[in-house]
Simulated scan of single mutants.
Amino acid sequence: MSKGRRTMRASAAVAAAAVVALSACAAPEDVEGPGEAEGDGETFLQLATGSTGGTYYPLGGEIAQLWSSNIDGLQVDTFATGASVQNMRALEGETEDEEAGAIDQSELVMAINGVAMQAQESTGPFEEEPLASPDDILALGNIYPEVMQVVVKADSDIESIADLEGANVEIGPPGSGTEVAARQILEAYGLDPDEDINASDSTFGDAATALGDDQVDAAFGILSVPAAGIVEIGASNEVRLLPIDGEEAESLFELDPSYSSLTIPGGTYNGQDEDVDTLTQWAALYGTSGLDDDMAYDLVRVMYENAGDIGHDVGGQVQLETALDGLGTMELHPGAERYYQEQGVLD
């Protein structure tokens, strides 16, 4: 992805997640094991998504339904997790999550591209506990832009990230992409996340409720635009987004090439009258070399060719043209690579 500015045209209205998306989601204990079922030749795959209050969970359910409906002999089940960091570990084997409990190995995961790069490079949250085979992580393609949104009430005295010193701040669940990015951003503004703020680690759904109830002063969230949780707060309270720009943003670009700038137009949320510059990464789909090449080909083909059937607001942002933005050093799965070559988006 280039570091040029992207401007997202977003309506302030958020549609409810489709019922079919939720019906495709299941708790880990209800999910069939991966592989081929005995006697009927059907293939079962699991897709690790994110917290129930975020975008990954309902969106992942809809994408899984697309796959199950359009690829013969395939059933994809989804389940809630702690999101990006948790999901990268789930590619290698069973992992534990405070919200979801024990999570089996997953053949497919949704994760922020920056976290995937950290997993491959054994840096950040993977430095002390690296994956056993980080080079086996393979990208299948981008899903939608993940936008860092730091929200406060419109009448708050907090005008910038630097003003969060001493404040009560929701920085995202442990191991989530939101938490990883929030810590990087706070440090770029000279704040120690463990010393200079009173940090909480709720899911964004709970964080939004806490902000609306004045239990916290600000909440970080890597979310789609518009974000349902922020729209819900704005229904009863005017809100503002804090900018992430200038020298601090430039330092983050140098630190992590998966970042780029994005402008959220004024009017996206109730109370946010002016354009706000912030950072974006990409929510992307990942697997390993253990995923069959033909299956990987069909997964990306169906996801992009049927994106118009996705009811979630970000469905319109699932585009073949941006499938490889911000890929960095990540290698493509050979099956996905074949599809992109056929479509002319990869030489």
Rank of each mutant, 00 (worst) to 15 (best):
V85K: 01
A21F: 03
E62N: 04
A83M: 01
I71T: 09
R9K: 12
P28H: 07
M8W: 09
L74S: 07
N87C: 03
E99F: 13
R6N: 03
A16P: 12
G60L: 07
G60M: 06
G50S: 12
G41S: 11
V76I: 09
G53M: 04
V85F: 00
L74R: 06
G101A: 03
Q75C: 10
Y57N: 15
A13F: 14
M88I: 11
D40T: 12
E42K: 15
T55L: 12
E99T: 10
L59F: 15
V76Y: 01
E32S: 13
G50N: 03
G4N: 13
Q46R: 15
T49K: 07
Q46S: 15
A90I: 11
G82H: 02
A102T: 12
A12M: 13
S84N: 06
A17F: 04
G33I: 05
A100V: 05
C25E: 08
G82I: 03
S51G: 15
L45M: 14
G101L: 04
E98N: 09
L45N: 02
D40E: 12
A64Y: 03
D77P: 00
L45G: 09
E98P: 05
Y56D: 14
S11L: 09
M88G: 00
A18K: 11
A80R: 04
C25D: 07
R89S: 01
A10K: 05
S69N: 15
T95G: 02
S69K: 15
V31F: 00
S84T: 10
G61K: 03
G53D: 05
G4L: 10
